[in-house]
Design a protein around this nucleic acid. Structure first.
Lengths: 201, 201
DNA sequence: AGACTTAATTTACAATGTGTTGGATAATTA
DNA sequence: TAATTATCCAACACATTGTAAATTAAGTCT
């Protein structure tokens, strides 16, 4: 198998990987599930089956690498920088908006990839990313966070929050995005912040 | 393939199915994932491979049937009756407690089955069940529900709530249940109800 | 442009898993 | 005990996998 650690520049490699990725996404839409095979992917990608092995060890390996790429694209698009976490609520909101807009822009890809049962790896990776994000956010709020005030263990709040996010996004995609990214971001705000904000109502 | 619609009474059938189920759970714990095969299951279950086909068409079919059984056991154990939904918050809380206790009681099964990447069907089924439950709950609350007050579309609240539940439970299992069912149920109460309750604090 | 390098193709092979037969054996039930 | 039914066994054609060797095609570099 070829080295994948550093980004390839050879157009032949880029072409082949794109063909494989497209074929995979393509098959994922029509396949009865679990009928995916390297043979079919190669056939659909119009490449030789042996060529597949020059890039990936097997299908799980392929999914792994594709998930890596997805997370990379994601961070790139949303502008997530681990060093400088969002501090204000406005920045939080904007990040969520960019995140949803990025998904909406590539909804065809994300709907297939996140909705399919064959590739839970993608959802899992996204869940991990959101978990880190929310974790950092809560950590940084300290005694200001609602879960501190309500006496809720931080890890439970993190599990709850990240699962709710990813689950809502997947359901949103499955239902063909009946709400705009901005509206959905607003609802997330209401669902998480209302605990504190509604005090005085 | 044998008829599975009505429950079998022949002890040989019950024995074989139990052997298959045990072997599957067993393999799921150690397998590298995606290396599951009918051959391996049959070998581990100490049954002939052909016998497998007398009960299930293929592995996805097996998972489907096992998921059906799981949901059935679940409703049985938790005491969910679609006709008579919970009305008071106490009943809600007790149902959640029974649900978590049932999972805790069979945690070995649920941890493997819900945590594995090979069998998202189980998580999905559970998600659907919780979605129905929460959906009915919100519907029944009418103008009393927090999402009505906050102007949050019902479907978003349902997506959010059910995904949060299933996700938290899976994370709870993955971390070997660091909290008691009662404590976790209490946190769910705090996380969902605090929006209204904390008004006066 | 020509030489060098690397990717992709082609063909072939052994190994494993799938799904299905027909007939023998064992367990259950009436 | 006799009839029924589940399981086992051996065997089959077929598909997929993973690997190897030699060949062709495309990209890179001077």
């Amino acid at each position: 198998m070829r080295d994948v650690s550093k980004q390839p520049t050879d157009p032949r490699v880029l072409r082949t990987r794109q063909l494989i990725k497209d074929a995979f996404i393509d098959l994922l839409q029509e396949m009865d599930i679990e009928k995916m095979s390297i043979s079919r992917i190669a056939e659909r990608a119009t490449i030789n089956r042996v060529t597949f092995y020059l890039h990936y060890r097997d299908i799980p390996d392929m999914l792994e690498k594709m998930a890596d790429d997805m997370i990379e694209d994601f961070k790139q698009a949303v502008g997530i920088e681990p060093e400088k976490p969002a501090v204000t609520e406005e920045e939080d909101w904007f990040m969520m908006l960019r995140l949803l807009e990025h998904i909406a822009e590539h909804h065809k890809f994300y709907k297939v990839i996140l909705g399919s049962r064959r590739a839970p790896i993608f959802s899992e990776r996204l869940l991990n990313m959101l978990t880190e994000l929310i974790s950092a956010r809560i950590e940084e709020m300290g005694t200001e966070s609602f879960c501190y005030k309500a006496g809720i263990p931080k890890d439970i709040a993190i599990w709850h929050g990240s699962a709710a996010l990813i689950g809502t996004i997947v359901a949103w995609l499955r239902n063909d995005m009946p709400y705009t990214p901005a509206f959905l971001a607003k609802q997330f705000y209401l669902l998480t912040r209302s605990r504190i904000e509604t005090k005085g109502e």
